[in-house]
Each structure stands twice: as C-alpha cells, then as structure tokens.
Design a protein around this nucleic acid. Structure first.
Lengths: 204, 204
DNA sequence: ATTATCTATAGATCTATAGATAATGC
DNA sequence: ATTATCTATAGATCTATAGATAATGC
C-alpha cells in the first residue's frame, strides 16, 4: 500500500517540508534534506526521483492541510453577533498561523521566484473564496442594514484580517527586537490588538 | 573622487540592487548581475571584489535611503488633529512601499536565511524608534485624556500601520488574483482601506 | 604607471544517476 | 525477484582569481 511508508521515506518528507518551508525551493538543498533526515543523499533520489517531484509532493500535502484548516475557520458554532463571529475567526486564524510561522515567508519567496509553482494553491484558494464570499457579503448587507455594523466589501475585511495576522506572525522577530520586547509577549499583544482593530473596523 | 563612478560601476550597482532585492543574497547570482548590467562577469569582481562586499555596499545605501524616508514621514506639516496626522503618515508610508514593492519580501527572506546580515538595519531602526516613540506616546496620553482618541500603546499602533501597508503591497499579486481584481484597483482600495482601519482604530 | 577590460580556468557545490551489494518476500 | 541501501562520479552551475591586453593619465 502506498500510504504504508517506511521510516526513511517519512523522514525524508519531514525533513523536506522543514527545508522547503525555511529556504524555499531554490534555497533548499537536497543534500541538506538528506542529511537532516539522516539518510544518504542517494536515498532521497531513490524514493522521490527529483527535487522537483519531492517539492510538489510536499506542497500538495500542505495545500490540502491548509485549505481544510481555513475552511474549518468559518464552519463553526453560532455566535451572538456577526462581529463576534468575525472576531472569533480572527483569533483562530491567528492561532493557525502561529502553528505555521514559516508560511508567510515561504509564500512570498515562491511568489517572487517561481509563481507558477504555487499556481495550484491560488486557484484552490480562489475557488474556496468564490464559495464563501457571496454568503458572507450577503450577511454583511443584511446586518449592516440593521445598523449593527458598518457596510464594507468582504474583500476588504478578509484582506484586513489576513494582513494583520500574517504580518504579526511573519515579522514578529523583527518587531519585538525593534521594540525591545519578548517574542511571546509581543505575539500575545498582537493577538488581542488584531481582534480589537477588526472589531472597531466593523463599527457603524 | 570615489563618488565619481563610471558607467560600468554604476550599471553593476543598479543591476545588483534589483537582483538582490528580487532574489535575496543566496538566490542572487553574480553572473546574472553582470549579465543584467551588460558587463563581463570578471568586471563585477574587479570593482567589488566579492559578492558579499557588493551586497553590503547595496544594503548600506538602501538603509540610509529608507531611514531618511521613514524619518521624513513624521517631520511634516501641522494637521488639525492627531488622528489626521496619523492618517497622513499611513498614506505616505503606503506610497513609500509602492515605490519599493520588493522590500517586504526581501526583508523576510534575509531574516530567515541570514538575519545577521540585516543586523545593522534593525539596530538603526530600533534607535530611530527609541527617538520617536516616547514623544508620540506622550502625545497619545495627552490627546486620549482629552477624549479625542482612545488610549493605546504606540508599539501597537505603529505595528498596525506597518503590517497593513506592508502586506497590502507585498501580497497584492496574490490577493488581486484570488479576488479576480485588477492590481491597480486593488492597491487603490487598500490605500483607502488602511487609512479607514487606522482611523477607526483610534476612535475613543 | 594606473585603470579598465577580456579570456580562461580553478575550486566549490549541487542535482542526479550508474552500478554494486545487502535485505526481504515469495 | 524485488526492495533498499551504499559508494562513486558525471555534469551543471557558481564564485573568484590569474594572467594577458588595451586604454588613460602623467
């Protein structure tokens, strides 16, 4: 069975994911991956043939995993208000990024160097957004007409959330150094601050 | 005079800045820089000796340029209110990033791969922040006591501004594709949206 | 004399494969 | 027979320099 992987195979995948996320496709070295996995370099090519196919294998796994997590953000319990629901999404999205702190940098790097390699990601995410956005926009229209929140396009709101959270996690190292703050304390501050900022953004 | 550069020298610098900003130190190739500059590869080493010294030369120039721009953001004309002043800073910071769209990705890449190479940048920025932050915080204390704005730590406010602007520019390509929007239209939307978000964040 | 330029190449590093050998499963 | 592993190496790519030659400035 193909999912019945031996230790070597699994070790290579794990090491490869770390290396690719950290260095990007171009920066990753198959020799370094093999070394990190504790196998000879030839074994990597024996199991995955080329660097390229190993990379594709990794990002397809990662894409499925991330898409599930993102979709799960929205399919959650009922909340008292629209604003509460959004704030809950902000918090869960933030936590998801803390679990994948290398993601923003990885995406930015690949986007620059070989955007075609992430083509699949963007079409998948684009499709998911096309599914979710209209419902969300309809809800905004309805609730804003009641005067509970202000009116705004969901593209703007979603961008706000993602941008605040991505940067908070991606640039935490820079900013906590610039401000002379502990990293955990800084992230804790950002988590609250992003919720607060989005909540105020929704005020009528 | 050392600032009296010939065409070759200048062409190498220009090409190197583009290449380093686009690919990062590790991804940049001195052969590619020479080719882009239209000179033989040996000339690059003749003028700047090593890839490393060429890189340092580039980022020191860039650091000085960026720091001046950032400091200029705050030393500006008087405004009617604190909130107006901040919103003006947001707009000018946004425009500055549009002029340097590769900057966020470059910083993130170098931060990951060899943070020590940007050590100088962060200490300089840290020093500048230590100069500006107390005055700004004092103003927040004063104006928030009057009830015109809410109280908040300047670290949070500055992070909010930088994060929204950096991501808007850095991830514009991804997001306008995901939303099926024109890039210029998306950036125009983000410019207004970031000002609006920060203005609301300051509400009492 | 000094500065600028070119050709050629050394030496390092990286991906990928060839070919031999050991372990495993019928 | 098939699967897993190792050693050795081919071939590509990249940084850096050596050494020769042309242009420039006293």
């Amino acid at each position: 069975m193909s999912t019945m992987q031996n230790d070597t195979e699994r070790a290579i995948l794990t090491a490869a994911e770390q290396e690719f996320m950290l260095k990007g496709y171009g920066g990753a070295r198959t020799t370094a991956i093999a070394e990190k996995a504790g196998v000879t370099h030839a074994m990597l090519h024996y199991y995955y043939r080329t660097k390229d196919s190993l990379f594709n294998r990794i990002i397809e796994e990662k894409a499925a995993e991330l898409l599930n997590q993102v979709l799960a953000l929205f399919s959650t319990v009922e909340h008292t208000s629209f604003a509460d629901k959004i704030c809950h999404v902000v918090e869960r999205h933030f936590d998801m990024l803390v679990q994948n702190p290398l993601l923003p940098g990885f995406v930015l790097t690949e986007l620059r160097n070989n955007p075609e390699r992430l083509e699949g990601w963007f079409t998948k995410i684009g499709d998911a957004v096309k599914m979710l956005a209209p419902d969300l926009q309809a809800e905004v229209e309805r609730v804003s007409a009641e005067g509970t929140i202000c009116h705004l396009p969901v593209q703007a709101l979603l961008s706000d959330i993602v941008f605040l959270n991505i940067s908070s996690v991606g640039f935490a190292d820079v900013f906590c150094r610039i401000f002379g703050q502990d990293k955990d304390a800084y992230l804790e501050m950002r988590r609250k601050e992003n919720v607060e900022t989005i909540r105020k953004r929704l005020l009528p």
